[in-house]
């Protein structure tokens, strides 16, 4: 029987405990539950519908890439999704308005420098996941884990609408248009 918990030994000493942790298998059937949970959290933090859906989309794409590339479509690989609720920057005691989502696996390791979205002018099926993740999230960081597998950190700030502004109107993060790389 496979243990569906990612081994954490040696990872991130000093990191505060996550507000929410989801242990899951690398099964496409579980994607809907994972993304809908994140979308629901985002809505309750004040994200508008489009922004909440974008965060869910990024999580879906990230998990799908772990299944597709990390575990090569094996359905019994462990994946952990850890979620922190983020207070606005500079206001640590204010109610949370943002999200940090960390996705960890024990699948195949890839040099983070090779994980890039493909050139959008190259119109073909596939390879859009990484581009989408970078486009909709404020921070995206891939790392190799010391204990094996990969860690992806995603941050989306500013759920609450302030002074007529909307998170949906934030300028998109710089897109990665790489070539000769691992695509998702």
């Amino acid at each position: 029987m496979t243990d569906h918990h990612v081994q954490h030994a040696g990872d991130d000493p000093g990191e505060s405990a996550p507000d929410l942790t989801l242990h899951m298998r690398s099964s496409p059937r579980l994607l809907a539950g994972a993304r809908e949970m994140v979308a629901s959290l985002a809505r309750r933090l004040g994200f508008d519908e489009v922004s909440a859906c974008q965060v869910a989309l990024a999580v879906d794409e990230a998990l799908a890439n772990v299944i597709r590339h990390g575990y090569e479509r094996r359905e019994d690989g462990p994946i952990d999704m850890l979620v922190w609720l983020l207070a606005p920057e500079g206001e640590p005691s204010a109610p949370p308005t943002g999200l940090k989502v960390v996705i960890e696996d024990q699948g195949r390791q890839v040099d983070p420098g090779l994980i890039k979205g493909r050139d959008l002018d190259d119109i073909r099926p596939g390879g859009l996941g990484v581009h989408i993740i970078r486009e909709v999230m404020d921070e995206v960081r891939y790392e190799k884990r010391d204990a094996g597998g990969m860690r992806l950190t995603l941050v989306k700030r500013g759920g609450a609408v302030k002074d007529g502004g909307s998170p949906a109107s934030d300028p998109p993060a710089e897109a990665a248009h790489g070539r000769g790389s691992v695509h998702g």
Partner: peptide, 8 residues
């Protein structure tokens, strides 16, 4: 809802 697999 549709992700990049649907787009592909």
């Amino acid at each position: 809802y549709m992700d990049s697999s649907g787009l592909a």
